[in-house]
């Protein structure tokens, strides 16, 4: 594999990692603050992508479409939190799994009902289309580079929000002791709704950004949600920093594995066998990574002990 191809795959891995982070950060925030496991997080990703595709189709503006994905997913998240999720905080994880699984069924089929079974297409805007030349003469799609930058900016913003703002202080306080926070006069119910809506908005934006690379269809959220689970298991549930490190590890491992393993097996196998063995093993690589992390640190890289 040539050096420029390697850099390109590395950037692709980074781009996957950044979009995974946008989805995983919401999951891990919701688990950390509310102790809730939300299987329907992938549906919010899907809602963001559909909102973006619908608005882009109507107005032709990609910026409006991105804004719509944030707004629609945040609104859907807040609504879901107030109607269903709120009743689940005091329940055990099994009830949470079931109720959010039920939400997936309702949201997926509801979306199919409204938009039909055919995928929608969200195209990359003209001003982000085409390649750019990076230092060293490597040509890379501008759109994917933009995703990486947007993702990193949002990650920085999220760290600042949690570490420096009053809302962030309340979120961290709610994580440690909800009774005391409530006794100090913070409206804990509203705080939870806001946290859930922030997580939903990030997943929705991620859906819109990825939607322009893939097609927008029902069920697009679930594979991402499961990858996000792998990410936060690796990073440690509840840790935003863990989610960032985990997301980039998973993104780079998956992308480089798919690009390099078949070549690696070609060294000592014939071509077609190497392709099939290599691609089959590459699809399992991130789970092997997860298993390895679990053996060394059962609560993830940045997880609290005994979660």
């Amino acid at each position: 594999m040539s050096f420029s191809l390697f850099v390109e795959q590395l950037l692709n891995g980074l781009q996957l990692g950044v979009t995974l982070f946008l989805t995983a950060s919401g999951l891990t925030l919701v688990f950390g603050v509310m102790g809730l496991i939300n299987l329907a997080h992938g549906s919010l990703f899907m809602i963001g992508a559909y909102a973006a595709a619908a608005v882009a189709g109507a107005t032709g503006s990609f910026l409006l479409a991105s804004a719509a994905s944030l707004a629609a997913a945040a609104a859907a998240g807040a609504l879901i939190e107030m109607v269903v999720i709120r009743r689940l905080y005091s329940r055990d994880h099994l009830d949470q799994v079931l109720a959010t699984f039920a939400l997936i069924l309702i949201l997926s089929e509801g979306t199919r009902w409204i938009f039909g079974s055919f995928p929608l297409y969200l195209s990359i805007p003209d001003w982000l289309a085409g390649p750019v030349t990076l230092p060293g003469g490597i040509r890379y799609p501008l759109y994917r580079l933009t995703i990486i930058l947007v993702g990193l900016v949002i990650a920085a913003g999220l760290f600042l929000l949690i570490a420096r703002t009053r809302l962030g202080i309340r979120i961290r306080a709610g994580e440690s002791d909800r009774e005391i926070v409530a006794a100090l006069g913070v409206n804990i119910a509203a705080l939870y709704t806001i946290v859930f809506a922030i997580g939903a908005a990030l997943a929705g934006l991620s859906g819109a950004l990825v939607g322009a690379i893939q097609s927008v269809q029902v069920g697009m959220g679930e594979p991402v949600m499961i990858l996000a689970f792998v990410v936060i298991v690796i990073g440690g549930i509840g840790s935003i920093r863990g989610a960032l490190i985990g997301a980039i590890l998973v993104g780079v491992t998956d992308t480089l594995g798919r690009a390099m393993l078949p070549d690696l097996f070609r060294l000592f196998m014939d071509n077609s066998a190497a392709t099939s063995v290599g691609s089959a093993l590459a699809s399992m690589l991130i789970y092997v990574l997860m298993a390895a992390v679990l053996i060394v640190r059962p609560t993830g890289l940045y997880g609290a002990r005994g979660a």
Partner: peptide, 29 residues
Amino acid sequence: LSLRTSGVYFIMITLAFGQMLFYFAVSWP
């Protein structure tokens, strides 16, 4: 592997291993 953890980790890890076999079955020709 999974029973080294508990609670929500266990749920996510069993889910992930299940999905690993799914992708293996899809990509094994």
